[in-house]
Amino acid sequence: MKPGEKQTKQKKKMIRDWFFLGIAIVFVVILLSVFPTKTEAVTLTTQEYFIEMIIILPAVMIIMGLFAVFISNETVVKHLGKTSGIKGIAISILIGTLPTGPLYIAFPMAATLIKKGARVSNIIVFLSAWACIKIPQEMVEFQFLGAEFMFLRLILTIIFVIIMGISIEKIIGWSERRNKIEGKRGIEG
């Protein structure tokens, strides 16, 4: 994707989001004028959640911005490409957790890694860690769902993501071997 193209796409998305917000507000106003008794409850909840979010979101954005600028994609690719085994998986998780933007940024990085010969298990673990165990995300989860919930889900996620990475690597290796055998048969027959 060219940078210009990306910018117009983002702008479109922004306009779309504000448009949806406008619709949502109109919808709420109509709904509350039909059910005026609900107004107090709705305003109270809005206020409560707005405050809870506004006291953490700017800080979360700053942390993400810092990591995105100070840790380049090249650094990530460099560290992930050469390690394997338990160390490889540990590094994949660690780098995946760095707060550096949405998942679709990680796809091209993962593609580069595959071309460079990194292991499939590392790439899967890296992508999944990137998707669901980012540090700022954990902080927000801590804030809204509590320590127990966040830590238990974190530990379980790490365990299962590693299992998933290894299984996908096995499945892909197995299907590639089978393809090779079938390919040979095809040539012979």
């Binding site: 609900k38 409850a41 305003t43 809005t46 959640y49 700017p58 954005m61 911005g65 600028v69």
Partner: peptide
């Protein structure tokens, strides 16, 4: 540069924040 990026992401996420808050409020209210 990081601060600018943070500001941009914040503005980008803002409408979504309000939409989620409204969704929560309606969900809990109704």
């Amino acid at each position: 540069q990081s601060l600018k990026m943070a500001g941009k992401s914040f503005i980008k996420i803002l409408p979504m924040v309000f939409i989620i808050i409204i969704t929560i409020a309606l969900l809990l209210g109704f």
